[in-house]
Computed example of a mutant assay.
Amino acid sequence: MSESLTAKQVAEHNTVDNGLYIIIDGSVYGLSSFMDEHPGGAKILKRVGGKDASKQFWKYHNENVLKKYAPKLKVGTLKEEAKL
């Protein structure tokens, strides 16, 4: 399942109950099923839920982590919105 989501749609998925989503470099990932697996714990993921977490992600991870988990967790891409 890969869909195009707006930033507003991603922001609505800011809790585990809503299907916790984050954005990393324009891709959207669903983390609800990953909460217990995350080595840093669920708390840090909940803090960035519904937001662009690119800066935080790259601070602690390398591209191999993304390559490993992207196929399982990616739900779509961020849709570019028109700027007025």
Rank of each mutant, 00 (worst) to 15 (best):
A70G: 04
S4A: 09
Y29N: 10
N64H: 08
W58K: 06
K68S: 03
D25E: 15
Y21R: 14
P39R: 00
V65F: 12
Q9T: 11
K83V: 08
L31I: 05
N14T: 03
A11R: 11
A11C: 08
E81G: 11
F57N: 11
N62Y: 10
I23F: 09
N64Y: 09
L5D: 02
A82P: 05
D25L: 08
A7I: 10
E3L: 05
M35I: 14
T6W: 03
H61E: 12
I24S: 07
G26K: 12
V16N: 06
L45R: 00
E12N: 06
A11I: 09
L20K: 05
K74G: 01
G30R: 14
I23E: 13
A53W: 08
P39S: 09
L20V: 04
E80Q: 11
V10W: 07
L84C: 01
V16L: 03
P39G: 07
D17W: 03
H38A: 02
G76Q: 09
G50C: 01
Y60V: 00
H61Q: 09
S33N: 11
I23W: 10
N14K: 08
L78E: 09
T77R: 09
Y60M: 00
G76N: 07
Q56S: 10
Q9H: 08
V75W: 04
R47T: 07
K74M: 12
Y29T: 10
N18D: 15
H13P: 04
K59C: 03
K83R: 13
D36F: 04
A42C: 01
H61L: 01
K51Q: 15
V28Y: 06
A11Q: 14
S32P: 00
I24K: 00
K83N: 08
K67V: 10
Y69T: 09
P71M: 03
E3M: 06
K46F: 03
V48F: 14
P71S: 06
G76P: 05
S4M: 10
N64L: 12
V16F: 01
V48G: 05
Y21E: 02
N62P: 11
E37D: 14
A82N: 07
K43A: 13
A53R: 01
R47A: 04
F57R: 12
I23G: 10
